Amino acid sequence: MKLAVNEKEFSIEQLLGKGKGGYSYLVSDGEKEYVLKQIHHEPCDYYQFGNKIEAEVNDYKRLDSIGIPIPKMIDVDIKNERILKEYIEGETIYQLVLNDKMQAEYIEQAKAMCKLLYPANTNIDYFPTNFVVQDGIIYYIDFECNNYTEEWNFENWGIKYWSKTPEFMEYVHNYK
Rank of each mutant, 00 (worst) to 15 (best):
D142Y: 02
I53Q: 06
T122G: 08
E13H: 04
P166L: 10
Q48P: 00
E9D: 13
V76P: 03
P128I: 07
T92H: 01
K2G: 11
V172G: 11
G17V: 09
G50K: 06
G158V: 06
K160N: 15
Y46N: 14
D77A: 09
F10D: 04
K37I: 05
T92W: 01
I138E: 07
L63W: 07
D45K: 10
E54L: 12
K32M: 04
A120F: 03
I141Y: 04
L63Y: 05
S65K: 13
Q14A: 15
I107N: 08
C145A: 12
Y87S: 03
E54V: 15
S65L: 10
V133A: 06
T165K: 08
G136K: 05
K115S: 15
L36Q: 01
L84V: 09
Y161T: 13
E81D: 11
I53G: 09
D125Y: 03
H40K: 02
Y161F: 15
E167C: 09
V27L: 02
I68S: 03
N6F: 01
Y148V: 05
E31I: 05
T122L: 09
I141M: 05
N146P: 00
V133C: 07
I83H: 01
F10S: 05
S163G: 10
L15C: 09
E91T: 08
E31P: 00
F10G: 03
R82E: 09
S163Q: 14
K37G: 08
G90A: 10
E7N: 15
F143Y: 15
G67Q: 03
